[in-house]
Design a protein around this nucleic acid. Sequence first.
DNA 1: TGTCCGATTGGT
DNA 2: CCAATCGGACAG
Length: 198
Amino acid sequence: MISLEKLSREFYARDAVTVARELLGKLLVHDALEGRTSGYIVEAEAYVGPLDRAAHSYGGKMTRRNRAMFGPPGHAYIYLIYGMYDCFNVVTAEEGSPQAVLIRALEPFEGLELMRRRRGTHDPRKLTSGPGRLTQAMGITRELYGVDLLGDRLYLTAGREVSATEVLATPRINVDYAGEWKDRPWRFVVRDSRYLSA
DNA sequence: TGTCCGATTGGT
DNA sequence: CCAATCGGACAG
């Protein structure tokens, strides 16, 4: 039986790098009208705020899009990328410190049939292996922008243990424009998972 | 208002 | 390798 205990506000109220690493193994759950889907986080990236050139909050400028990053921790920051895909982030750190963690891949757990229908594929490796894929599989859209992750629609629970030896840190994906910040090892993955992004 | 382009994906 | 597709960011 999985833990129904939601991650606490305190869990999210820390720096994005710490939260990203600790999010590995946690279970992401979306209870939608069509049903529940969930999956274990196997890949996550930290975006640390105003100094981080790769972050949407670079420079400390609050805009319509990144507004949620400046809000209290434990809320959803969701944005559209390339005009086609929604990306899901967890807001971290204290209010006013615009940090977030991008969830990049999951190992599917509940609602596989619903995920297959939404994704239009039966290949388990193509269901939730990528930030745009997992939001589609789980029905996470900008309609959920800013929702409280301690609420009943979209939330995270304890999930499973991931030991330190299973965690691998690498540079973040597709942030070549970020200069010296592109090489920071702030992408965390569960080593050897079959469900990582490309 | 106009232009440029992206924390991606799927098909060639 | 490249097109898809559109809202955000920013210049004017």
